[in-house]
Design a protein around this nucleic acid. Structure first.
Lengths: 186, 186
DNA sequence: AGCTTTTTTTATCATTTGTTAATTTTTTTC
DNA sequence: GAAAAAAATTAACAAATGATAAAAAAAGCT
């Protein structure tokens, strides 16, 4: 998925504004296993995924995966981006990736200069917010096997591309519980 | 809390832009129990809480409270606001409230006209996103009694102002479980 | 292909949370 | 302030999920 498509998918932009964003983007390729963003660090870039798959996780005694990003999605440390404070998430590449890199510094400048880009940034946050809110509500309404079925329905390809330990963590259960749920569904 | 304060708390605005927003706001007072926003309906207003307390809930077989709003906070149906689609949440006043009302139509117009207001709207969504993300992660990391202790620590006044059934629902557990947790903590 | 490592499944038992119903406490109403 | 209604607690049992360990299956490596 190319950068123009990715930007438009978030929110349509006039050609001029889109070019302003595109001019600040550089393309990079990184290997599976690479750590793209580190927890407890102020990150100065955001990324758009051209190709590949990543996950965001938080580490305490265990590791909790709370987001997967695939083609077309945006990789961002929200705390760094919004509050210029160290973020809580680590981003790991689950596949070899091709990424578009954008310095948050440059993005901030564009936000202040171009009302279309400011509204594009607003739409981005708003849409992410709805997705996160829906997940929170789903977590409150549904038990683990319902959430698993929902994920199978909404993102079946994830189950092919991601190992089950990460899926379990994303669903908020242990890997053993997920295995049990899968066995019961057969 | 007056409107100028509320707007600034979200993100600082130049005087001119702030006045533009304030000019579109009208003040209303509504009684406890009033339903401010309805699920499955495209809502055309957002509200800022001058005084009082509200909750957002989703209804299926049971009722799940997923947000409390108090003085200074913004009441909004995200789906209506972002996608102009019927929202999933109902907003009920838990106390008599004084509110500032703002038509989303007018807000949208301001977003397109004033880059400061567009960035103010962006900041609003971004901050809400971080709060929601943190709750999602907390839900994944912590068990019910840890989440209860966290709520007591972060929002002790809620426990005085909200009945425990709603708190339990917010924490994602039954009222009976919450009672049990409270009994164990004594 | 064969060996090694990693991932997934299965089994058992422990813990947490849910369900239902009865009881007590608090709040509301007249 | 007494009666009624609503909210909160307690108890007993059921169901879901967690923890640990062992076995099986799959993936990676040379």
């Amino acid at each position: 998925m190319d950068i123009s498509n990715i930007l438009d998918r978030i929110h349509e932009l006039p050609e001029q504004s889109k070019l302003a964003l595109q001019n600040n983007v550089t393309e990079i390729a990184l290997a599976k296993g690479h750590i793209l963003l580190k927890a407890n660090k102020i990150e100065s870039n955001i990324y758009f995924i051209k190709k590949g798959l990543v996950r965001a996780y938080v580490e305490r005694d265990n590791e909790v995966t709370f987001w997967f990003g695939k083609e077309g999605e945006t990789v961002i440390s929200m705390k760094s981006y919004v509050e210029e404070q160290p973020g809580y998430e680590t981003i790991e590449l689950l596949e070899d990736c091709e990424l578009y890199e954008l310095k948050t510094e440059n993005l901030r400048k564009l936000f202040n200069e171009d009302v279309h880009i400011a509204n594009w940034g607003r739409k981005f946050a708003e849409k992410e917010l709805i997705k996160t809110e829906e997940r929170l509500i789903s977590k409150q309404f549904k038990n683990a096997s319902e959430r698993y079925l929902e994920l199978m329905k909404d993102h079946p390809e994830l189950l092919q591309r991601v190992q089950l330990g990460h899926i379990a963590s994303y669903l908020g259960i242990t890997q053993v519980s997920l295995s049990r749920i899968r066995a019961e569904l057969k």
